[in-house]
Design a protein around this nucleic acid. Structure first.
Lengths: 353, 353
DNA sequence: ACAGGTTAGTCAATCGATTAAACTGATTGT
DNA sequence: ACAATCAGTTTAATCGATTGACTAACCTGT
């Protein structure tokens, strides 16, 4: 790799000093427009490439922003990423991406690397199990602030005083449960997400709240990984049971991803969610509109979360508060009324609609 | 932001020079182990953070690798990204990510930024419409090599002498068409992808080849964007037609994403692909196994493409060749035998299986 | 004609780390 | 006993750009 063209080369070509060339490129008023033009022309002609790292070194600031997501295998994180990237680019920032693959060690390593790389900020969707102590590389104990400005999104960390842009997950869980309750369901199940992320805890808590408020028995808890496969297994397991009262008539899924699996499993059993086991998801991934049957779900405002988080990162006066974004019910086709227990209903069903 | 701890601080703390500290941190044999230990301890205690940018400046090499993808809204690009990132991390490289959002200008800007950032390499999944000239910032005309080592993946650029790791898309198209032909289909449609990417061109060409070889009439071409929405519209449009001979019985989709839309549209019309309009996709996205009905598709070896591309980038002796990875047919449930034209077949169908 | 003010640059230090070369003592060989 | 060797560390230059201080040339007004 033959050494690249530097400012020195450009300056020599024109017959000025490096300082002049530097100022010219940034349109400093001290440099006459004639000289500036000559420098610009020479830079172009020689194929000069600005060395941002060198500039950052001197300026001790950076145009790189680290974005660390826990996992990209769930497409919903992608949707956050796109909005984040969009907003950052609009402010002249570049993304230094880390994918932690749901692994605390990888997350810690990435945070370290990002710091070494000299990023000017960090947007973090923390891996499950992340605690204040886990962030000590980024924010040594006892310091008033982290080493670089940091904003959390999508998942809350309650014991960390940072700006956080989070979906109102309690409300999301409540909306999901209420939707099933409003359709007449009385035996519900919670499918997915254990207790390791704020998202899962809060959504489950919200669902339980709504169920209790309606005077119904607590939901059956079917905790498991956020994978389509898990939803599929749950579907087969539930449908293998005899109906009432052993089998719930509605499932509240922690995430759309699980809901898709659940729906697929139900369809494979030659029935459909609305008539045998209503399913409601949460996230409203793009796919939800197009899967069959279209998924009823709770929409998370991914665009606002992404944009606001990025804006907050770039705002020096941002307050370290948790901001909750409201979710929204999106009715599609996977929630129906529970079958009555009348003996003929099962038979009749096949001929309806 | 209070200034961070530098090597100088560490050195002063221990009472040695910066040079000694630098060498100690990299375990240089010239430094006694006693001194090394003291320096390591002080670095740890003071919270020293290595400044990679400064080091790179001196060494004129970089641990950053730019990865530019045309679009992340198609989850399949994600799957590439994950494997790429994996392999790069294994070699101590970090990802500097760009999402070009299918826009040549954004791609050009990102390439420029990556160069300015001083990346040591570039992995590129080029936006459609990318030509040799579009890469002139990265590879000025007349130069024997690009300014930084570059490897293409997933989409080929035929007039560019770079290592390229690509799915054998002609073969993929052929396999897809052959699958439908083997199931007895004779009137086929090609859905999606125009002529702007090598992927689309080659897959379509492969399909046409297989169709011609079987002595069948050329497929109806339904070009359109790679979106679920487009597949959905095509489904409604096709099913609105009377059957034979106006309506194809099998659709070869450029991408799984389109196939999902098509399948959803077919299901919405109260029928299913296997019995009314067989659908075969291409990519084998994770979702394909779990959507309902599970999608028959051509699997692209995303893991190999990602890994090999990353390895090639890091290999100084890599040859600028196009490497074609073999695709594989994955039979699931969206391809069936075409209905015979016997008058009763439609009626009988409802009572079969 | 000369103090004071612009204008258009140049100088030199600097950011934080790396590295070739030089420099100390201490040890070894003859 | 004196040069040669060697381990361990320091010195100083360097990477490429930025920036505050400084200067030379040219005006301007009285």
């Amino acid at each position: 790799m033959n050494r690249r063209v530097t400012l020195r080369n450009v300056a020599e070509e024109v017959g000025v000093t490096v300082a002049t060339a530097s100022m010219a490129l940034r349109a400093h008023p001290r440099i006459s427009s004639a000289t500036t033009a000559r420098i610009l022309e020479a830079a172009e002609r020689l194929g000069y490439i600005y060395n941002r790292a060198a500039a950052n070194l001197r300026q001790t600031r950076s145009s790189l922003v680290a974005v660390c997501v826990s996992d990209l295998s769930n497409p919903v994180f992608n949707e956050f990423l796109v909005h984040l990237e969009d907003e950052l680019r609009a402010h002249g920032k570049q993304v230094f991406l880390g994918i932690a693959r749901d692994d605390l060690t990888l997350q810690r390593q990435f945070l370290q690397t990002a710091l070494e790389q000299g990023v000017g900020g960090l947007l973090l969707l923390a891996v499950r199990g992340t605690t204040r102590a886990e962030l000590s590389g980024l924010w040594p104990e006892g310091q008033p602030k982290p080493l670089v400005p940091t904003v959390l999104f999508s998942r809350a960390l309650d014991d960390v005083a940072l700006p956080q842009f989070i979906n109102d997950d309690v409300e999301a869980g409540r909306l999901a449960a209420q939707c099933l309750i409003d359709h007449g369901h009385r035996r519900l199940a919670w499918v997915g997400g254990g207790q390791q992320t704020s998202t899962a805890r809060n959504r489950q808590a919200g669902a339980e709240l709504a169920i209790a408020a309606a005077g119904l028995p607590p939901p059956e808890l079917l905790h498991g990984p956020t994978l389509r496969q898990f939803g599929l297994e749950v579907a087969h397991q539930l449908l293998a049971r005899p109906e009432a009262p052993e089998r719930p008539t509605g499932a509240i899924c922690f995430s759309d991803l699980i809901a898709f699996g659940l729906v697929a499993g139900i369809m494979q059993s030659n029935t459909d969610p609305a008539s045998s086991l209503s399913v409601i998801g949460c996230d409203d991934m793009e796919e939800a509109r197009f899967s069959y049957p279209p998924l009823t779900t709770i929409a998370v405002d991914k665009a606002s979360i992404g944009r606001l988080a990025a804006q907050s990162l770039l705002d020096p006066d941002a307050r370290p508060e948790q901001v909750l974004l409201p979710p929204r019910l999106v009715l599609r086709a996977t929630v129906g009324r529970p079958r009555t227990d009348a003996p003929l209903s099962h038979f009749l069903h096949h001929f309806s609609t």
